[in-house]
Nucleic acid binder design. Structure first.
Length: 276
DNA sequence: AAGTGAACCTGAAGGC
DNA sequence: TGCCTTCAGGTTCACT
């Protein structure tokens, strides 16, 4: 994708969650993709000049890639998993440096995703990015940092971990999994967890591990959520608590059952016995 | 300030 | 079979 020329853009509707920029097609056509980046759950596409394209997949968005083959027919990986083309909202026609053509198609049934522009000069102060907290990947998030983020907060630890202003990029599934791994009751106040240095170190490590394992497995793939080639991710097969209400806890030696409750309007899955 | 609930939208799944 | 209700990975806004 990097280095590819954007030969054409098909924008098939005026908006997703937000309206597209008024000059969406014209501003992107003829640009070359310099690099792809990510901040939290935002995809950042750097071009050879302004604007920078910022994409968010929302809950049901996905990109898939179609390679054009030389005989003129279209080759698409895993095309047996046909997606509903009625929800193909944007098609980017790309040509790479070797002259090969491909299409990158944005599909989003619920249209909770969005695409925005920013200038390179103001990307760091873009409204969608400016308030974001620390990345949960890499080495930045360690015990002491987590401790400082949670200190003094009365909100439930579940809600705190989901707060993008504190940690940027954790979703509902990964928060549930990390709390289960650490044996923490999701209802406990964040400041209580902050008071326990050992527990904070363990929670920080669990967060990094859950994310790392999910990436290796190719994402979580609930329902119609797929990878760029249309295939499903496999991390869903590794869920220890998420979506397992009523089933036995998988912790060795625990006889408990997984429960479900709602916190901050989101489902929380947790072991009613071993998460304290 | 911090917490809750609603809204955005479609589709899948379960109950009857 | 089909109609109805409920629920879903995220973010933002309005309100208490």
């Amino acid at each position: 994708m990097e280095g590819a020329l954007i030969r054409d853009v098909e924008q098939r509707r005026p908006n997703l969650r937000c309206p597209f920029p008024a000059d969406f097609v014209e501003a992107l056509t003829g640009r070359r993709i310099v690099s792809l980046g990510r901040r939290a759950k935002y995809l950042i596409v750097h071009l050879d000049r302004d604007p920078i394209l910022i994409c968010h997949l929302g809950m049901s968005g996905s990109f898939r890639i179609q390679n054009d083959v030389t005989d003129g027919t279209v080759g698409e990986f895993h095309h047996e998993r046909s997606k509903n083309e009625a929800h193909d909202h944007v098609v980017f026609h790309l040509e790479d440096r070797e002259g090969a053509h491909r299409r990158v198609i944005y599909n989003d049934p619920r249209r909770f995703g969005f695409m925005l522009f920013s200038d390179a000069a103001s990307i760091d102060s873009h409204p969608s990015l400016i308030g974001l907290g620390v990345e949960p990947t890499g080495n930045a998030l360690d015990g002491p940092l987590l401790q400082s983020l949670l200190a003094g907060r009365r909100t439930p630890i579940k809600s705190a971990l989901l707060d993008q202003r504190l940690i940027a990029g954790l979703g509902n599934i990964y928060v549930c999994e990390a709390l289960w791994r650490t044996g923490i009751d999701p209802r406990r106040e964040a400041r209580e967890i902050a008071a326990d240095t050992i527990l904070c170190a363990a929670l920080a490590e669990a967060i990094r591990l859950v994310i790392a394992e999910a990436i290796v497995a190719g994402g979580s793939s609930l329902r119609d959520h797929v990878q760029t080639d249309g295939s499903m991710g496999y991390f869903q097969h590794s869920f220890k608590v998420y979506d397992r209400a009523g089933q036995p806890c998988l912790r060795t030696g625990c006889e408990g059952e997984i429960g479900r409750m709602v916190q901050g309007g989101r489902s929380t899955f947790y072991c009613t016995s071993c998460q304290k």
